[in-house]
Amino acid sequence: MFAGLTPLLFLALAYLKQREDEAGSGRPPAPFRPHWWPPVAAFIAFLVWALSIQGLLDAATMKGWGGLIAFGALSVSTVLSLVDRLVGLPRS
């Protein structure tokens, strides 16, 4: 459930930020057209983080997949930032 709420929260915050920027600059409101990648990245990052929580998965699964999950938790930020560049998002 929270994995699905993460991209929705991201989109809500992006919308609010766009409206605040427009109000501060005096520009008329523009259509809200977010890039598809950031909400997807937020969803992926949340899932990797959630899987790394100890006790969420049973012991047998953690024994078989624990190393991969730990590596994913450590490397997800780097991988997602590289994909940011591949899909053409500007660096901030």
Rank of each mutant, 00 (worst) to 15 (best):
Ala45Arg: 10
Phe2Pro: 09
Ser25Leu: 05
Ser92Lys: 14
Phe46Met: 06
Gly64Ser: 04
Thr61His: 01
Val76Thr: 11
Gly64Glu: 03
Ser52Met: 05
Leu86Ser: 04
Leu11Cys: 03
Asp58Ile: 06
Leu13Arg: 14
Ser25Pro: 02
Leu16Asn: 12
Arg19His: 09
Ser75Ala: 14
Phe71Arg: 13
Asp21Asn: 15
Met1Ser: 14
Pro31Lys: 04
Phe32Lys: 03
Pro31Arg: 08
Ser75His: 10
Arg19Asn: 09
Val79His: 03
Ala23Gln: 13
Leu89Met: 12
Ala12Gln: 01
Ala59Arg: 10
Asp84Asn: 15
Pro29Arg: 11
Leu86Ile: 07
Ile69Asp: 02
Thr61Asn: 02
Ala30Thr: 11
Leu74Met: 10
Leu8Val: 11
Leu74Trp: 09
Leu68His: 04
Trp65Thr: 00
Ala73Trp: 10
Ser52Gly: 14
Leu74Ile: 04
Thr6Arg: 13
Pro28Leu: 14
Phe2Glu: 12
Lys63Asn: 02
Trp37Asp: 01
Lys63Leu: 06
Val40Phe: 07
Met62Arg: 14
Gly72Gln: 06
Ala30Glu: 13
Leu74His: 12
Glu20Phe: 14
Pro7Gln: 05
Met1Gly: 15
Leu80Ile: 12
Ser25Cys: 09
Val40Lys: 01
Leu89Asp: 00
Pro90Trp: 02
Ile53Tyr: 09
Tyr15Asn: 04
Gly55Phe: 11
Ala3His: 09
Gly4Ser: 08
Trp37Tyr: 15
Pro34Gln: 07
Ala23Pro: 02
Ala30Tyr: 02
Ser52Tyr: 08
Gly67Trp: 01
Ser77Phe: 15
Phe10Met: 08
Ala30His: 05
Leu57Ser: 10
Leu16Ile: 10
Ser77Thr: 14
Leu82Ile: 05
Leu80Tyr: 03
Leu86Pro: 01
Trp65His: 08
Pro31Glu: 07
Gly67Ser: 04
Ser92Tyr: 07
Leu57Trp: 05
Leu74Val: 07
Trp37Ser: 04
